[in-house]
């Protein structure tokens, strides 16, 4: 039970509890806010896995960007006459059953397949410069295609969102 395992369970809780709130809370604004906690838990998990640049990216893009966008959308799409955010009661039995069946399958696969893990316990090395080298050499094509995808998303979203 080293410190890493201890922190793993803490960050797992920080990720899962807000995610449960986000899925089951009737008020859409509180659901959006609980995502804030869950994204921080995922950032903590990334740090434990030694991916420090990915953890900072997670905080920057998800918390600073996507969550701001979702909250903007939630506030823009509110009904006009000050009605509260109540999400009509939709019976949630079927999704939960389906979800648990799916979870059962996933857990069976995870626990039965023999993963050839290489358990290394030396401290993780900083990753940013190695990521940069990989992006410039091995993953150059996806890197250049990324800008085309961003361009398409940018122009598409602006055309849709620009009020005539």
């Amino acid at each position: 039970m080293t410190a890493q395992d201890f922190f793993f369970y803490i960050f797992a809780l920080i990720t899962l509890l807000p995610a449960i709130v986000c899925v089951f809370h009737p008020n859409i604004l509180y659901a959006g806010l609980s995502l804030f906690g869950s994204f921080f838990g995922v950032a903590g998990i990334y740090i434990l896995l030694g991916a420090d640049f990915i953890a900072a990216t997670q905080v920057l893009i998800y918390v600073g960007g996507i969550l701001v966008l979702i909250l903007f959308a939630v506030m823009l799409s509110k009904d006009i006459y000050g009605a509260k955010f109540q999400d009509e009661k939709k019976k949630k039995i079927m999704p939960i059953i389906l979800g648990s069946v799916l979870l059962g399958f996933l857990l069976k696969f995870i626990l039965t397949t023999p993963w050839n893990m290489t358990l290394t316990d030396e401290a993780p090395l900083p990753t940013t410069s190695r990521l940069g080298d990989l992006l410039l050499t091995d993953y150059l094509l996806p890197f250049e295609l990324a800008s085309i995808l961003l361009l398409a998303a940018l122009i598409g979203a602006i055309i849709l969102a620009r009020s005539k």
């Binding site: 990720t15 899962l16 995610a19 449960i20 986000c22 899925v23 869950s38 995922v42 949630k92 999704p95 939960i96 389906l98 979800g99 648990s100 799916l102 979870l103 996933l106």
Partner: peptide
Amino acid sequence: ILFVLGII
């Protein structure tokens, strides 16, 4: 678990 929560 996170994946299944997302699906639900």
